[in-house]
């Protein structure tokens, strides 16, 4: 265990001495924290807008007034879902892309492996180090957000909402670790860290952008009649094709789970955590599989390499 910790602490030290990683990690923290501000400001603007709408409609002699938009506290934090999905995954890639390829380029892998340690200890150490950094970033985000949340929005969250938020961060952690594992795997397989980085970027683009876009383009936009105004709105609806495409993107799965947990979907905002997780079971499984696959792949490939 001592050796694993030595490797883990070296990983953490090098991560925090790497300016590029620091820059992207700071960007992540800044945005996650900023998102509370933006979320609150937008919600406030929306409430004022609602009052204006009511006044406008009344002055025009309308009889039916639209209901006040219901604001669930956690939904103010909803931007964080996107930041974790996009920037969080990039943070994990920055952390992992050169973990093995750079050791190879610099020759240090030979120094490591000529020490009395097992290969799995080395990979475990790297994993622990990465997990620690990611967990650290997320915990800072969580604490800051909870603090800012009460200060800026003036709202309080109850225990159920806090549990939702915590579980959201657990999923965020897993989501980021999946990308870290994928980078570790690519880094293991590649001799050149620049190539490993670019390859991970392409994978990231595919998973977090191209596949969701493809799925989005296959959604049905049904026309829905608005009860109050009797006007037509277009609402996106999942189709079999869009659902099938989405399976291949952990980002979509994470966003689906995240939206439910952070009360973005009004119909699910009041459900118990357990019911919510049961409802999202399919998404959770689709989110878990790629990370586990990468973990197994990394072990398998690194342990075999010695032959």
């Amino acid at each position: 265990m001592g050796k694993i910790l030595s490797i883990a602490s070296k990983e953490i030290k090098t991560a925090f001495k790497d300016k590029a990683f620091l820059a992207v990690a700071l960007l992540f923290l800044l945005l996650s924290i900023l998102s509370v501000y933006i979320g609150s400001a937008t919600k406030n603007a929306e409430i004022t807008a609602y009052q204006d709408i009511v006044n406008l409609l009344k002055s025009q002699g309308a009889t039916s007034i639209p209901a006040e938009p219901k604001i669930f506290p956690l939904s103010i934090l909803k931007n964080i879902i996107n930041y974790v999905a996009v920037i969080g995954s990039i943070v994990a890639i920055f952390l992992g892309f050169n973990s093995f390829s750079e050791e190879r380029e610099e020759g240090t892998i030979k120094l490591l492996l000529s020490r009395p340690i097992y290969r799995d200890q080395l990979i475990n150490g790297k994993l622990f180090g990465g997990a620690f950094v990611i967990a650290g970033l997320l915990i800072i985000t969580l604490v800051f957000n909870c603090f800012l949340f009460t200060v800026v929005s003036g709202m309080n969250i109850n225990f159920a909402e806090f549990s939702r938020l915590t579980v959201f961060f657990v999923f965020a952690f897993y989501y980021m670790i999946s990308f870290y594992l994928a980078s570790l795997f690519v880094s293991l397989k590649s001799q050149n860290s620049t190539f490993a980085f670019l390859l991970m970027l392409i994978i990231w683009m595919g998973v977090s952008y191209v596949i969701p876009q493809l799925a989005e383009s296959q959604k049905n936009y049904v026309y829905v009649l608005n009860n109050i105004s009797q006007t037509m709105n277009q609402m996106p609806q999942d189709t079999l094709i869009s659902k099938t495409i989405e399976i291949f993107s952990p980002t979509v799965q994470f966003k689906n789970i995240g939206r439910d947990l952070l009360q973005v979907v009004p119909e699910h905002a009041q459900l118990s955590l357990f019911t919510l997780l049961k409802l999202n079971l399919r998404s959770i499984i689709y989110l878990l599989v790629p990370g586990l696959f990468m973990l197994f792949g990394s072990y398998n490939s690194f342990l075999k390499e010695g032959n």
Binding site: K10, K13, E105, E106, S114
Partner: peptide
């Protein structure tokens, strides 16, 4: 491996870490 010391060709060590930090790391591993 616990009895040998090894220096490969063209090794650069961890360039972002200090000499002490590099040695501390490798010493702990041994």
């Amino acid at each position: 491996r616990s009895m040998l010391g090894y220096l490969p060709e063209n090794v650069n060590l961890y360039s972002n870490l200090t000499a002490f930090e590099n040695l501390y790391f490798f010493g702990s591993l041994s």
